[in-house]
């Protein structure tokens, strides 16, 4: 029965469930940012991309539900989220490569622009309910409804996980991956090889934004599954910090995203079993984690192992 209480087992279950549910946007944004930063540019604007992605996915899913049915419409929404992300990526990629333009400053402008345009266009979608992405219920064997509910896995999560080895292989073993790394590590050498720095960076930023857009779709079409103006609450920015923590390695991006996703569930889970003091502290875990990461990994004295050589440098 649904009324069975789980007691203390609720905490690990909530963390696992939170990890599966909440890590998807982190995963996509961090993979996208990983690709972008490998090419030597930072895209802080992914927070805005995440919001625009969430809005476009929700809006398209809602508007097309009549025509395409509730099964297909969310998937078109996911695609549109990616395309909307690419649009923002194009602007960022073009602007940040102009002379005397700082990519961090452009990124901050893009956060404001992306969020603004999402809020503006998203007004009519706050109220209606859009069809959601179907989930894979892998725990229906369990007699506990709590366990069944925890293991409703989004296909987007699986897609994100599948993307990790692909991206890793892309960087290590493909010619295009080599181009991206060359442009990011040593633009001069890449230029000597005859690679267009501008084109490679533009492509990396656009594809990175595409992935971040998909992350937004996970927010609005899977979990928590709605469009509001404060849907992302800083997750895009956290994911950018997470890439540094992950040392620009796709596999480590995956572990870091899972960690951050799980950390979000900590505060509510502890309160629900009666540990109710210090909830502000528990609720702040993701932010504290980000800070700790920044403190331990950033130092003006040395460059980080694994950091793309041209990252954050004027060319």
């Amino acid at each position: 029965m649904a009324t069975e209480a789980l007691g203390w087992w609720g905490v690990p279950l909530a963390i696992i469930a939170g990890t599966l549910r909440g890590s998807v946007p982190f995963l996509f944004v961090s993979l996208g940012e990983c690709l972008t930063e490998k090419s030597g540019k930072i895209n802080l604007g992914l927070e805005g991309t995440l919001r625009l992605g969430a809005m476009s996915a929700y809006g398209v899913s809602y508007l097309c539900a009549q025509v395409l049915g509730v099964g297909l419409a969310p998937w078109l929404g996911v695609l549109m989220a990616g395309i909307a992300g690419m649009g923002l990526g194009l602007i960022h990629g073009w602007l940040s490569q102009q002379r005397r333009v700082n990519d961090v400053a452009v990124g901050i402008a893009m956060i404001i622009f992306g969020s603004g345009i999402a809020n503006f266009l998203g007004k009519p979608f706050i109220q209606p309910q859009a069809p959601q992405l179907a989930t894979l219920d892998v725990a229906n064997w369990s007699s506990l409804p709590q366990v069944q509910a925890a293991f409703k896995i989004s296909p987007l999560f699986l897609l994100g996980v599948a993307l990790v080895p692909v991206l890793d292989w892309f960087f290590k073993s493909t010619r295009w991956g080599l181009y991206v790394r060359a442009v990011g590590d040593s633009p001069q050498a890449a230029k000597a090889m005859g690679i267009s720095i501008v084109k490679v960076r533009l492509a990396s930023i656009v594809m990175g934004s595409f992935l971040a857009g998909l992350g937004g779709a996970a927010l609005s079409l899977y979990y928590p599954g709605l469009w509001t103006e404060r849907i992302s609450s800083g997750q895009g920015l956290m994911a950018v910090a997470l890439v540094i923590f992950a040392r620009w390695q796709p596999w480590q991006c995956l572990w870091a995203s899972l960690l951050f996703g799980g950390a979000q569930a900590l505060g509510p889970a502890f309160q629900s079993v009666g540990i109710d003091s210090y909830y502000y502290l528990f609720n702040a875990t993701p932010y504290i984690l980000t800070l700790v990461i920044m403190i331990f990994t950033c130092s003006p004295q040395r460059t980080l192992a694994g950091a793309p050589g041209a990252l954050g440098k004027e060319d």
Partner: peptide, 28 residues
């Protein structure tokens, strides 16, 4: 009544987590 404080007026992910973890504890 189990009360869970999310810490802010609009944090959709935390609100969903709070609801889910209370349902897991038998709140109906």
């Amino acid at each position: 009544t189990q009360v869970i404080f999310t810490g802010d007026w609009s944090v959709p992910v935390k609100e969903a987590e709070a609801t889910n973890s209370m349902v897991d504890q038998g709140v109906d």
